[in-house]
């Protein structure tokens, strides 16, 4: 029923018949989702609240495992293996698939230590290497110029938009393959939002990006592919332009024209 386009280029992730059930729930929150995620492009997930888009996003780095009792079924393949396998090394997986949250989440430490955090977790202790990689990450996150003179300052002194870019720097410092964005601009003002959107577009050179957004315009502005979800199902996945201009499914059309939401 659903209308899922074939992705001709290489895929970063491939979701097949994926089901997810929260602890204690009788019905799955995600039902038989099948979805390819193109490499080095941006895939947006849209849909009314409660449709499962964030639940799906948090499955890619197995975030649901932090709360026991949730169950997965089906397959999400990444680098040739099914990451839903109970034997999957989650520490390794999460360094390969990074995440940015709804609100900036600067740790209670200095700007430098925030960005160096993931690197140190991987055992990098060499000061020159750390400094080099922190600077590179901050530059890639377009925040180096603003913070280079106060790297030792507490990260919580930065503005919301700066903190969110710091979090992006922290995530890309460990050089992941995929970055997950969970409504990254929902707590930011319009100008900071613009900055983050520009940054997301630049980042796709290096990483594959999945972004959940409640804002259809944002999906239209930044993404190459858009998936529309409704009641736990992926209704349609298409090239962004096509999906917004000539949706194949009636539900998609009703949603993007504002008939419900």
């Amino acid at each position: 029923m659903a209308s899922i386009i074939d992705i001709k280029t290489e895929c970063a992730l491939h979701v097949r018949d994926f089901e997810f059930t929260y602890k204690g729930a009788t019905a799955p929150s995600l039902k038989k989702v099948t979805m390819p995620i193109a490499k080095h492009s941006i895939t947006a997930l849209i849909g009314p609240s409660g449709c499962g888009k964030t639940t799906l996003l948090r499955s890619f780095n197995r975030m649901h495992d932090l709360y026991p009792g949730n169950t997965y079924a089906g397959e999400i393949s990444f680098e040739g293996r099914n990451i839903l396998d109970p034997k999957e090394d989650l520490i390794h997986l999460r360094t390969k698939i990074g995440m940015i949250f709804q609100k900036p989440t600067a740790f209670p430490m200095s700007i430098f230590d925030n960005v160096a955090y993931g690197l140190r977790l991987q055992g990098i202790k060499n000061k020159t290497e750390l400094e080099g990689r922190v600077e590179k990450a901050l530059e890639d996150a377009a925040i180096w110029k603003e913070v280079k003179d106060r790297l030792k300052h507490d990260a919580n002194g930065l503005s919301g938009g700066q903190q969110q870019r710091l979090c992006i720097a922290r995530a890309i410092a460990v050089e992941p393959e995929v970055l997950l964005f969970d409504e990254p601009t929902s707590a930011l003002d319009p100008i900071s939002t613009q900055g983050i959107e520009r940054l997301v577009i630049e980042l796709k050179e290096k990483v594959s990006i999945i972004i959940v957004t409640h804002n259809m315009q944002q999906a239209a502005r930044v993404s190459d592919y858009t998936g529309f979800m409704y009641l736990g199902e992926l209704i349609e996945l298409g090239e962004t332009e096509n999906l917004f201009v000539t949706p194949k499914e009636k539900l998609t059309q009703e949603y993007i024209t504002g008939k419900f939401g």
């Binding site: 520490i91 390794h92 977790l121 991987q122 055992g123 990098i124």
Partner: peptide
Amino acid sequence: MTAVQKRII
């Protein structure tokens, strides 16, 4: 032993 293994222990 790698840094990650150390952390796990």
